[in-house]
């Protein structure tokens, strides 16, 4: 079996009704876009991959990441990072504190600060370590959220319409930033979106999900 994120004959069910079926492989460094009307279960599919299905939903088939089945693993052990349209920064932690939350605890105390400062440099937020996240602009918050997730060293990336809340010019910047980081880290990436421009910028395969009957 090849590396990457594999949805192996995966069917998503809600209370005995099949919502959608997918069979696909997202290769490392590739972005696959899922497009379709709202309500077809795109976000729920992502929740199935992170292991956080709401009550009433179930799946059949397999979800494999780098040839390891994710089914049965708790979300904490799946190493699947996710970004939502809301930044979801923790309001009680500083910007640096948010990034540190993502950083694995195995990284020793003395190296943590340097790693976080380097991460801030990488997203153009040098010197923002002690800032209140609420005082950041929308684009800055989105960048912190991205970096926080990347610092947790995921093996795959899920994007749930992460650009839809941003202004048009900011959206373009953010897309480039996200996709370049994903490519650099060779992460298999699954993008859920309404916006054809997102899928186009992603440059990978596009799958159109049909509306459910």
């Amino acid at each position: 079996m090849p590396d990457g994120l594999r949805l192996d004959n995966l069917t998503l069910w809600r209370d005995g009704t099949a919502l959608l079926s997918l069979d696909l492989l997202v290769r490392p460094g590739e972005v696959t876009s899922l497009m379709g009307p709202s309500g077809v279960g795109k976000s729920t599919l992502l929740a199935a991959i992170t292991g956080q299905l709401p009550p009433g939903f179930s799946t059949k088939g397999d979800i494999r990441l780098n040839d390891r089945s994710l089914l049965g693993l708790p979300p904490q052990a799946r190493r699947v990072g996710i970004l939502f349209q809301d930044h979801l920064l923790f309001p009680h932690l500083s910007v640096g504190g948010n990034l540190a939350f993502g950083l694995a605890p195995t990284i020793p105390r003395r190296d943590r600060r340097a790693k976080i400062e380097a991460a801030l440099d990488a997203i153009g937020l040098t010197g923002f370590h002690d800032r209140d996240p609420e005082t950041l602009s929308g684009g800055q918050k989105a960048r912190v959220a991205l970096m926080r997730m990347l610092l947790s060293a995921p093996s795959a990336l899920l994007l749930d319409e992460p650009f839809s809340r941003l202004d048009t010019d900011l959206r373009d910047q953010m897309r480039r930033l996200v996709f370049s980081h994903a490519a650099e880290r060779r992460l298999p990436t699954l993008l859920v979106t309404h916006d054809a421009a997102d899928a186009e910028a992603a440059g990978g395969p596009v799958i159109h999900l049909p509306a459910t009957q």
Partner: peptide
């Protein structure tokens, strides 16, 4: 309390207890 905060934290590897102690409790101070 926005459960998506817990969802994001869990995907970053945070345990339920860590989410409770370092996110939920302080935010609900």
């Amino acid at each position: 309390w926005d459960l998506r905060q817990a969802a994001v934290a869990a995907t970053m590897g945070a345990s339920d207890n860590r989410i409770f102690l370092t996110l939920r409790l302080p935010m609900l101070l």
